[in-house]
Design a protein around this nucleic acid. Structure first.
Length: 246
DNA sequence: AAACACGTCAACCGCATTTCC
DNA sequence: CGGAAATGCGGTTGACGTGTT
C-alpha cells in the first residue's frame, strides 16, 4: 500500500471532522480501510493515532489531577514504561499523554536532584510512592475494565459514561480550545432539518470531550449497523461536497 | 521589547504483536 | 502452519507557547 501523496504533520480541522465521521461509520478498528475510504491522505496508523490521542470522545484534555499524577508515578514504578497499560487505569488519558507527563516529571525530578544533591539520601528514589501508598488496585477511580478505554469498537462508547462530568469542568477551566475549533468547522452546512437536528443529542459536553459529536447525534445511533455503506455516499456527499475522493 | 531557555504536546518512526488468509 | 498485512506500543523529535532574563 504505497500511497502517494501521504500527508504528514499536524491535522487540520477538516481532516479531524472527516476522520471522526468515518470512524463513526466503520468503527475504530479498520484503520487502513478508514484511511482509504475517507479520502484522507493519511496512513491508517496516523488516523489511529489521531483518533486515540485527540479525537476520541471521553478524552480529558486538561491538566492531570494530583490523583492522576500520583497514580501514574505509582503505576510506573510498578509496571515500568507500560504506558498503554497505565493509561487503562486512567480513564480519559492516553498513553501518549502519560508518557509525556512522565518525561516531564522525570526531567523535573532529575533537575531537582541535581540541584539538591541531597544530603539526606533517604529514599529520594525515583518513586517516592513505592511504599506508602495504598495498593493501586484499591483506588477509587480505577474502575476501568482492562480493556483500553479508547477501544470504542463501534458503539459502546456511545453509552453515557457518566463519570467524566467533573473532569469536564476541569477541562473547561483550562481553556479547552477544542470547543472553539469545532464550532468553526464548516460542517454546519449539514442540513440539520434533514434529520440531524440537535434535539435528541444526548451527548453534549457531559460525556463527549469532543464537540464534534454534536454534529452527528443521530448518526451515532446508526453506528451499530456497520454496513451503513449505503449511508456513506449520501451523507458524505452532503457533508463533504467537494471532497469526495472515494 | 527582544532573545533565550524551558516545558508541553502532537505526531512520526521502528519494532513487536496480533489477525487474517 | 506460515507469511503478509494490520494494528498496537514505546521511544523520540520538532513545533509551538510561555516564562525569564
Amino acid at each position: 500500500m504505497v500511497q502517494e501523496g501521504i500527508r504528514k504533520g499536524p491535522w487540520t480541522e477538516h481532516e479531524d471532522v472527516q476522520l471522526v465521521f468515518y470512524v463513526k461509520l466503520f468503527g475504530d478498528r479498520r484503520w487502513d480501510f478508514v484511511a482509504k475510504v475517507s479520502g484522507l491522505k493519511r496512513t491508517g496508523k496516523s488516523c489511529r493515532l489521531r483518533w486515540v490521542n485527540y479525537l476520541h470522545p471521553g478524552l480529558k484534555h486538561g491538566k492531570m489531577t494530583p490523583n492522576e499524577e500520583r497514580l501514574v508515578i505509582e503505576l510506573q514504578s510498578k509496571w515500568g514504561n507500560r504506558w498503554s497499560r497505565i493509561a487503562r487505569k486512567l480513564p480519559g488519558r492516553t498513553d501518549n499523554e502519560i508518557k509525556n507527563y512522565w518525561r516531564t516529571h522525570m526531567r523535573k525530578q532529575a533537575q531537582d536532584r541535581k540541584r539538591a544533591v541531597s544530603p539526606t539520601p533517604s529514599t529520594s528514589n525515583s518513586s517516592s510512592f513505592e511504599s506508602n501508598d495504598p495498593p493501586v488496585d484499591s483506588m477509587p477511580f480505577m474502575e476501568t475494565k482492562d480493556r483500553s478505554f479508547y477501544d470504542t469498537g463501534g458503539l459502546e462508547m456511545l453509552a453515557p459514561r457518566g463519570k467524566n462530568t467533573k473532569q469536564e469542568e476541569e477541562g473547561i477551566e483550562k481553556g479547552y480550545s477544542l470547543d472553539d475549533i469545532w464550532k468553526e468547522i464548516p460542517l454546519f452546512e449539514i442540513d440539520t432539518t434533514k434529520g440531524y437536528s440537535e434535539e435528541g443529542c444526548n451527548f453534549s459536553s457531559q460525556t463527549m470531550a469532543s464537540p464534534i459529536w454534536n454534529y452527528f447525534p443521530d448518526m451515532l445511533s446508526m453506528m451499530d449497523e456497520e454496513e451503513s455503506s449505503v449511508f456513506v455516499p449520501t451523507v458524505t456527499g452532503q457533508i463533504f461536497a467537494g471532497y469526495e475522493q472515494l
